[in-house]
Write a protein that binds this DNA or RNA. Structure first.
Lengths: 198, 198
DNA sequence: CGACACATGTAACACGTTACATGATTTG
DNA sequence: CAAATCATGTAACGTGTTACATGTGTCG
């Protein structure tokens, strides 16, 4: 629900049309979050269907402008106030890979970890260079790039922690590896969730 | 493409059926990544269609076991070797909110930031408690929870950096706020991407 | 038998992607 | 006029969600 509310926010400044929305969206995110146009139109249709925006009846040129409704403004405010539901963490592809590599015969987890680590560090450097290359006070670019660099950094730190943890576990006793979490006998089902969100 | 390969990995250990796959998936992720059954079946169908798994013809009971094919094993190995394409960073909802709140009249960005910060810190504590409450050497739980805690921590640090940056910008001169990134005149289009991935 | 769990699916939807189709307007 | 660009869509697909439908086997 990220694009949906971003479009609502842009429309809260005044009536706008499809392509314009894409351009402004990308400008606000420092040109680092691309947005395909098709999604803009389909999202606008859903927003209109839900009564959050209205298409203007003005037949001036090929452009079809939408404007936000009261209901839309209310939803936008509500969205800003309410923290997202993180009761279940998102499935992360890299974490998945490591979890898989741990138990897959013929695969060296540490190789997988290090290969991805190198890639991530390289990416971080590229983003940092992009940020420095941007305009001096480009707040949007700065914030968007920072978010990604911070995220990548946390992944790198997780990889390091996982690597150390796995090496420690292997040193403690290779025989223990199968004991860690038996594949059969899938334990008394206790699904862990965090019950936050009002 | 996370569940798809996770199921492939589980099937690389031997033939398994739907519900069993869900249980094992959740066990391997420390019961913190829930997986709905419906997706297991639809994913298995796609995997079979793509020739990566085969359903066994054994009509033993109500269970329908699938086994991995050579092609499937190859795809799994390939997936482990290849780093994901991160040339464009994922759109993050919280980052989006802050970017929106900056320019939305009648909204205090710092309030939004602090409210979400409190929520995130609370979540981190809950996850940490869950990790400590788990079995001593539960490697899967530990890794999965760490990944989420590290991620949340990076978000908190980003929020702090953003807050400081915004306060600095406001102190430098409130008149500059509109100068930061004019909404109209959306700049000479230079879309930023990172061209990694071989 | 009737209730419950196991097990497999399907339906409908939201969101995201790539690719293609179709006009309208500008400009060489 | 022809080509490029602006602008709006649609189609097909992957992935994820929730909810429902349908059997089958077990157990009181």
């Amino acid at each position: 629900m990220s694009v949906r509310h971003a479009l609502l926010a842009l429309l809260s400044e005044g009536p706008k049309y499809g392509l314009q929305l894409r351009e402004e969206f990308e400008a606000r995110t420092g040109e680092v979050w691309p947005l395909n146009v098709g999604q803009v139109y389909t999202t606008l249709q859903r927003l209109e269907r839900d009564g959050l925006v209205e298409s203007e009846g003005t037949d001036e040129g090929p452009q079809k402008a939408y404007e936000i409704t009261e209901s839309g403004a209310a939803e936008l405010a509500e969205w800003l106030r309410t923290p997202p539901d993180l009761s279940a963490p998102p499935r992360d592809e890299l974490v998945m890979k490591v979890l898989v590599a741990i138990r897959l015969p013929g695969t060296d987890v540490h190789e997988v970890i290090q290969a991805h680590r190198r890639y991530l560090v390289q990416l971080m450097q590229q983003w940092t260079r992009i940020k420095e290359g941007g305009a001096e006070g480009d707040l949007n670019l700065s914030l968007a790039v920072d978010a990604e660099v911070f995220r990548l950094d946390s992944v790198v730190r997780w990889l390091d922690a996982a690597d150390a943890r796995l090496k420690r576990a292997a040193a403690d006793g290779p025989g223990k590896q199968t004991t860690v979490q038996p594949a059969e006998a899938p334990l008394p089902k206790q699904r862990r969730r965090i019950g936050a969100r009002g």
